[in-house]
Computed example of a mutant assay.
Amino acid sequence: MLFYKDISIYYGKIFPLNPVAVKFLEEEFNGKKKILDLACGDGKYSDALLTHDRDITGVDLDKGMLEEAEKKFDKRKNIKFIFGNMLELSSVFKRERFDAVFCIGNSLVHLTSTNKIKKALRELNSVMQNNGKLVVQIINYNRILNENINFLPTIKNEDIEFIRNYHRHGNSRIIDFHTILKMPDGDIESHQELYSLTKDELIFLAEKEGFTLESVYSSFKKEEWNDQSLQSVFVFVKN
């Protein structure tokens, strides 16, 4: 994934740790001891959820991100970061089973078809314990599609400016996620395809693969979901 390779060393400045998201995950994963951070990026959420009696594994497909995670956090025996594809989790974890999984940061929609998303959910089911919790966070694509939104708010701070554009061709469900990272020494421009997955689609696919929806929110603050939400946060339980 060239997009993440390009921005991996700046990722923490673009997307700093969100304490509200950490609190949400702590509440949902209360009592959970073996946690999988799927598409872990630079590993900051794995680290934030780590306690002495938890084992946390971060998985990502981008080696640059994993290098950042290992450099910052891979210093204790109960946290590890490994290279892996969410479409091949049953091969990556042949014996391990997790009682909690989270996939946040709009990561699931990097799979560009419902067939791939369904496959990922099936693979997740295979590596989770019964009654395990699954948290998924994505952009609210109901809003994106209904209102033909072609950009996300620019992220700007004292270090960087990160411009995020969405381009669709006609009625295609594939979005060209075009980003420009403005830096003092030059811009980094990238393109990444995303699938515009709606709320009901994800619920339908998850239920087909053995999950029951527990809750869906408009943010990690547990606000009620609505069509104008900027994001969608789902909590599923494995049957």
Rank of each mutant, 00 (worst) to 15 (best):
F3G: 05
Y4F: 12
Y4G: 05
D6N: 14
I9F: 14
I9T: 10
Y10F: 10
Y11F: 14
F15H: 05
F15N: 00
N18H: 06
N18Q: 05
K23E: 11
F24K: 01
E26Q: 07
F29K: 04
N30E: 14
G31F: 07
D37H: 02
G41T: 02
G41W: 07
G43E: 06
G43N: 06
G43L: 07
R54G: 08
D55C: 08
I56W: 15
T57G: 02
G58T: 03
V59L: 13
D60G: 02
G64D: 14
G64K: 00
M65R: 01
M65V: 02
M65F: 03
E67T: 06
D74S: 15
D74T: 02
K75A: 15
R76Q: 12
R76D: 07
N78P: 00
N78R: 02
F81N: 09
I82E: 09
I82N: 06
I82T: 14
F83V: 01
E88C: 06
L89T: 06
L89N: 10
S90D: 11
S90H: 13
R95E: 13
C103W: 04
I104N: 00
G105A: 09
H110T: 11
T112P: 06
T112Y: 03
T112M: 06
S113F: 10
R122G: 13
N125F: 13
V127I: 15
M128R: 06
N130M: 12
N130D: 11
N130H: 14
G132D: 15
G132R: 02
K133R: 07
N140W: 11
E147S: 10
N148H: 10
I149F: 14
I149Y: 12
I149Q: 08
F151R: 07
F162T: 00
R164S: 11
R164E: 09
R168D: 05
H169C: 07
G170Q: 07
R173M: 15
I174P: 04
I175G: 05
F177Y: 11
F177C: 09
H178T: 12
T179C: 14
I180C: 13
M183W: 07
D187R: 03
D187Y: 01
D187E: 11
E189C: 05
S190V: 09
S190Q: 11
Q192F: 09
L194A: 14
Y195W: 12
L197D: 09
L197A: 08
K199E: 14
D200G: 05
G210M: 04
F211W: 04
V216I: 15
Y217I: 00
S218M: 01
S219F: 03
K221L: 10
E223P: 05
W225A: 04
Q228F: 12
L230A: 14
L230D: 12
Q231M: 10
K238Q: 12
N239C: 06
N239E: 15
